[in-house]
Design a protein around this nucleic acid. Sequence first.
DNA 1: ATAAGACTTGTCAATTTTTGACAAAGTTAA
DNA 2: TTAACTTTGTCAAAAATTGACAAGTCTTAT
Lengths: 106, 106
Amino acid sequence: MKTTFGEYIRLLRNQNELTLTQLAAKLNLDSANLSKIENGKRDFDEKRLPKLAKIFKLNLTELRNEYVTDQIGKHIYETNCSKQLLRVAEEKAEYRRKLNKTLQTQ
Amino acid sequence: MKTTFGEYIRLLRNQNELTLTQLAAKLNLDSANLSKIENGKRDFDEKRLPKLAKIFKLNLTELRNEYVTDQIGKHIYETNCSKQLLRVAEEKAEYRRKLNKTLQTQ
DNA sequence: ATAAGACTTGTCAATTTTTGACAAAGTTAA
DNA sequence: TTAACTTTGTCAAAAATTGACAAGTCTTAT
């Protein structure tokens, strides 16, 4: 998926021929806010992922992966993080994993 | 730098033989909160990067890179984002950059 | 033993950010 | 034109982050 999460929702919504109002109702939110989400002016609230998966019969884990990669991609974009720096960030994530492991055993 | 940003601050502080109280004062914050930052229990507020750079005579851009990679690394860690998914995230960042470019020209 | 200094932890109010809701406006098609 | 759909602006409510203070531990010097 090479789009934003908002665009992905819009795609799903159109494929299923739902209006903003209809999908928003299913998601328990305002159609105005769903519009903003689809247009990238607001974030989709992670709490609603299970509901979204259910509505479109998607695998929740895969949907969450779409969500996570969107969020991190946004973070990379907003901080202007180069590929080189991203490798450093990945090493730091690795470091945190190790830190956590040693904490577990203690 | 393969440590957390908090650990990095602690390193700088120790190298310069400052106490938490002394450094906290220079940064205009409470020593208790600086302690939490060094121990990874709170985030360092980005607004203070210029002050931090000045105190330790560091290049602000490089310091900001340390900060950004720490933040993204934390994000990767907390979302359990695999290397494979991270590549997807990077593609999505790239997509956002292109989106932004086309918006600029319009 | 205890006093002093350095550090840590818990709590809570203040600030900041995010979210939900509503109104109003713009867009498109019949 | 109307009617349905979508977008935008605004603002209060909710959530998350931060600052500040108190009380605690730990170490070291006297």
